[in-house]
Write a protein that binds this DNA or RNA. Structure first.
Lengths: 344, 344
DNA sequence: ACCGAGTACGAAAGCGCTTCCGAAAGCGCT
DNA sequence: AGCGCTTTCGGAAGCGCTTTCGTACTCGGT
C-alpha cells in the first residue's frame, strides 16, 4: 500500500500500472517511445492514485524547472501588483509556480535578488519595473542576466529597453506625448511636471514624450518646471508644495505616475485649490483606483495585467534569434481632473 | 577548473578545501561533528568560489526546503498585496523565497493551489484571506492542511479561525462593533450594511460586530438591511442601488471592506447624493488609498503589512503544542465620509 | 525465409546533496 | 600497556526523477 499524497513516488505508479519506472516517466511527461495504450493506462493510474511528481527530483534529474521568478519593485504598489496578478494568472493556467521578490528600486538589492533566483535554478525570470538611467548600474544586471540566458534560462523584462532580452515595453514616450497634447489642447501654457527620480528610465522616457509634445506645439520644454522627487505618492506632495511656491502661474500638473498624481491631488486639496477649475492634474498608468479619486483622474491607461501575462508568454516561447519586443499600446483616459486652462 | 556560477558543485568546494563531500556538507549547513578549524576553511573556500547550494538536490536529499508558499485570494487586491508585501519583506530578510498563488476566493481552486504547494515540498505555507462559512468546504482544506502539518510542514493562516493552526486574526468583530458605535454615536438610526457574500467568515464576523453594536444601543439588528453581494467594488455599487431603491430612509452605509465602500461612494456620486451630509459611509481595512478618496473614507485600520510579517514570523517558530493566535488590533480612523445623521 | 530499420520497453547510470555508519585517532582511566 | 569512550572525518547509500543505452520484438522489402 503506497503512502498517501506526498510520499507517493513514480515507482509506485509504475508498479501499479505494471510498467517500468522509465516507461512511466515517459508516459507522464508525454515523451514518445511509449505506445498510446500503455501511456493511457499509466496516466489513468497516476490520476487515480493522485500522484504528483516531486519537482525537486524532476529538476535535479535534468528536467526543466517549472517555476518562474518574478522581480518587482514593490508588490504593494498597485502598478506592480497588477502586473504580478497577470503573471500569476497565466502561470496558474500553465501550472507553473511563481517565486516573487522585491527589488525595492535599489539596483544592488535587485541584483542580489536576481542572483538568488538564478541560484534557485528557476527556469524563467521576469523582471518588472523601470531600468536605471545610469549605464554603469545597468551593465551589472545585464551581465548577470546575459549569463543566465546563456546557460539556458529564459528571461523577459517589463519596461526596460537596455537589456537585449525579450521585453514588454510600455508606451511611455507616446503616453507622455498624449498627456502633453491633451493639456496643450485645453489651452494650458504653464505646465509643470512632477517627475520621479531621473535615475529611472521610466521617468526619463515619459518626460521625453512630454517634452516632444511641447516642441510639437511650439513651446519650449526647457522653460517647463520639472520636479524630481521620489516616484511615489509622497514625492507628489513634496513636488506640489514646490510648484505652488516657486511657479504660481502653473495651471496644469503632469505627474509621471498615478501614485504621484494622488500626492498632488492630496496636496492641492489641502491648499483648497480647485481641480480642475484652477489646476488640471494628470497621472500615468491608470491604476484601478484612479477612477475613484475625487476628482477622478485623467491619465494614461497601461494594460498592467496584460503586461504581466505578455511577459510570461514571451518567456514561455523558446528564445528567438533577436530579442522580441512587444509594445503595450496606451490610451488617454480623460476624466474629471482636467479642464480648460483658467484665465490668468 | 570548476565551472562558473551554476554548475559549481559542493564536491568542487570539498576538493579545493581538501575534505570529503560529507565534511563539506556538514561544515556548510552548520552541523556539528566538524572541528571549527576545518569548518572555517570550508566556509572560506566556498565563499571564495561563490558556491551556492543547489536547492533541488538539497531538498531531495532530505534537507528542509527554504521556500514559503503564500496563498492569497488575489494579489492585485490592495488588502492582499499589502499582506503579501509584508510576507515578502520578512522573507527577504531571512533569505527565504516566496512562492505565491491565487485562490480567487474559490474554495476548490484554493485547495488545488495548496495541494500544489505541498507537492512542491515548500516548508512553510501561509494562507491569507477569509475562510468559508460552509463547514463542509472548510473541512476539506482542513484535512489537507492538517496532513501537511503532521508531515512536518509549518502553517500559518491569516484571518481564519476554524483551522487549528497558528493564526493571525484581524479584529473583525471588534472592528465591526467600532463602526457601529461610531455611526450610532453620530445619531444614525437607519443604517444599512453592504456585506460581501455570507460564505466568507470575514463577512460574518464583521457583521456580527455590527449587530452587537446595534444591540448594545438598544437597536434591533434584525431590522437593519443587509445586502449580500460580491465582496469587491462592483458589489458595493450593486448593493447601493438596492439600498437607494428599497430603503430610502437610510442615512448611513457600512461597507464591510474598503473595496465595497469605494463602490458605494462611486454609486452615490452618480446619484448626486452628498457624503456625508445626506449619507455617511464607512469601510473596513484602511487600504492605502482610503485616505485619498473623496470624501476620504472613515474606516477600520488593519495593519496589513504587519499581518503578513506576523504570519511568517509565527510560521518560522517551531510548532507549539497549542496553536498560537495573534490578534491584530484595530483602529477606527475617522475621516470625511461620516458625519451627523441628516434630519429626516 | 532473411536482414536492416524501426518501435516499445526495461535496466541502470546519474543529477547534487544529506546523512547513516564505520574507521581512525585522541583521551583518560585502570 | 590495554581498554572503552568521544570526537572527527570519509565512504557510500539513497532522495525521486530523467535519460541513455541496450534488448527484444515487429514489419516491409527482397
Amino acid at each position: 500500500m503506497p503512502k498517501p499524497g506526498p510520499g507517493l513516488r513514480l515507482i509506485d505508479v509504475a508498479q501499479r500500472a505494471g510498467v517500468s519506472l522509465a516507461t512511466a516517466s515517459r508516459a507522464l511527461s508525454g515523451r514518445d517511445g511509449v505506445s498510446e495504450e500503455v501511456a493511457d493506462r499509466v496516466r489513468q493510474v497516476s490520476l487515480e492514485m493522485g500522484y504528483v511528481a516531486n519537482p525537486y527530483a524532476r529538476t535535479l534529474a535534468g528536467g526543466a524547472s517549472s517555476t518562474v521568478g518574478l522581480v518587482v519593485h514593490q508588490v504593494d504598489d498597485p502598478y506592480f501588483s497588477e502586473i504580478a496578478g497577470g503573471v500569476i494568472q497565466l502561470a496558474g493556467e500553465q501550472s507553473l509556480l511563481v517565486q516573487i521578490c522585491h527589488s525595492g528600486r535599489d539596483p544592488a538589492h535587485e541584483l542580489r535578488q536576481i542572483r538568488s533566483l538564478i541560484a534557485q535554478r528557476v527556469g524563467i525570470i521576469i523582471v518588472a519595473g523601470s531600468g536605471y538611467s545610469d549605464p554603469q548600474v545597468e551593465s551589472q544586471s545585464r551581465s548577470v542576466l546575459e549569463g543566465y540566458e546563456r546557460d539556458g534560462g529564459r528571461l523577459a523584462v517589463i519596461g526596460r529597453h537596455s537589456l537585449s532580452a525579450d521585453a514588454v515595453l510600455p508606451d511611455n514616450e507616446a503616453g507622455g506625448f498624449a498627456l502633453g497634447e491633451h493639456l496643450i489642447g485645453l489651452g494650458h501654457r504653464h505646465i509643470a511636471v512632477v517627475a520621479g527620480t531621473a535615475a529611472l528610465t521610466t521617468v526619463t522616457d515619459r518626460m521625453a514624450g512630454v517634452a516632444a509634445a511641447m516642441r510639437a506645439h511650439g513651446l519650449d520644454p526647457a522653460a517647463m518646471p520639472v520636479l524630481h522627487t521620489d516616484f511615489i505618492r509622497e514625492g507628489g506632495r513634496v513636488a506640489t508644495e514646490q510648484i505652488l511656491r516657486d511657479h504660481p502661474s502653473t495651471t496644469a500638473i503632469i505627474a509621471l505616475n498615478d501614485a504621484m498624481a494622488m500626492g498632488v491631488l492630496s496636496s492641492l486639496r489641502e491648499h483648497h485649490i480647485p481641480v480642475p477649475s484652477r489646476m488640471s492634474v494628470v497621472g500615468f498608468d491608470d491604476v484601478s483606483v484612479a477612477a475613484d479619486l475625487a476628482p477622478s483622474l485623467t491619465t494614461i491607461r497601461l494594460p498592467m495585467t496584460d503586461m504581466g501575462r505578455m511577459a510570461l508568454d514571451l518567456a514561455l516561447k523558446p528564445r528567438a534569434a533577436r530579442p522580441r519586443r512587444r509594445r503595450t499600446g496606451h490610451q488617454l483616459i480623460v476624466r474629471d481632473s482636467t479642464g480648460p486652462a483658467a484665465a490668468l
